[in-house]
Design a protein around this nucleic acid. Sequence first.
DNA 1: ACTAAACTGATAGACTCTATCAAAAGATAG
DNA 2: CTATCTTTTGATAGAGTCTATCAGTTTAGT
Lengths: 199, 199
Amino acid sequence: MSNHDRPALGLRERKKARTRSEIQRQALRLFREQGYEATTVGQIAAAAEVSESTFFRYFPTKEAVVLRDDLDEALVAAFEAQPAHLGPLQAMRAALRAVFDRLSEEERREARERAALVLSVPELRAAGIGELVETFQRVSELMARRAGRPAHDLAVRTLAGALLGAMLAVVMEIVDHPEADYVERLDAAMAYLEAGLPL
Amino acid sequence: MSNHDRPALGLRERKKARTRSEIQRQALRLFREQGYEATTVGQIAAAAEVSESTFFRYFPTKEAVVLRDDLDEALVAAFEAQPAHLGPLQAMRAALRAVFDRLSEEERREARERAALVLSVPELRAAGIGELVETFQRVSELMARRAGRPAHDLAVRTLAGALLGAMLAVVMEIVDHPEADYVERLDAAMAYLEAGLPL
DNA sequence: ACTAAACTGATAGACTCTATCAAAAGATAG
DNA sequence: CTATCTTTTGATAGAGTCTATCAGTTTAGT
């Protein structure tokens, strides 16, 4: 999404990237204007000037056109890059800060808009949370390794689950208060976890 | 599900209950034998000897025939019934114990089987977690009231999220270790939360 | 029994998604 | 620039979930 990397893509690759982003752009616009389920894949395809088949070549499902993002991937990478002396929670806190600090203002705005859309449409919410849970599985393993415990350890899983829940809470918070600062809220939630959940 | 309540249902009500449970029974059997997506609604309807239309009158979606249960409802009720002097976490712990202790051996077995099915089918997993999140919203409000804080308080939401994550962890644990004791695991996870998530 | 209400099955249709195949466009070599 | 090879595309057909409607049947209330 940023503009630092252009390793001389061929015409074919560039066209693909443009098509993908055009489909996504038109889809989000239509969703915003007409609502998610009132918009058909056919309409999206027509707006992006491709055939319906092509839509499904770029996005496996209608949901994916909203859900697709690279943040999970980036988060896992950032977590692994943290220095070994940090505990699982501290490492995750640092990783989250690293990932979100890297986003441009524009990217944050779009991420927020998508989050709001996902949370407001039941169908999308289910699928979106589902993706979050898959990330949770991976994070759970990474945390276990860092804590020197087996991957199936109940304590580790509970901790990973708590972390997941905290992130979900922040997402909901952000949707309610769009003007609030991302990173600060996320950090506050993590601090609350580290403090041992004082009620 | 239990057999204590029979307030003289009319013939119509009894027939409806029987049809609903027959559809569900046949559906779960077919899912077990052929897999979830290999089974069509038409097959389920035929096995239960009803029309396809009737299937959709009883269950709004194919997913619902697996996901439907009354545990969330019971949990919310049990939480509210806890004595006021308990903190949010303790109250939830007690509520969980109350709900699960009440289940018969048979009911626990079936709940476990369904959990395994839900977690193993991506489509169901997403929808299942989605339901869990809706419960989370309600629990979040109840916890806020009990803690004397506003419903949108970040700490409360984070706590509720952590709780949700812990429950998810236990569900996964149970699927991996079917022989393990439900209530004991759940209680252990809650204790871990109360202890402040020592890593 | 009689009427009103609830329930059912049949049919038609919209929409998401899969599979296949021939046409179009881009890449590569002479 | 042309010929060839590969990738991408659009068109068509089809399966499967789910909605809407409508006539026919079963149950409830009096």
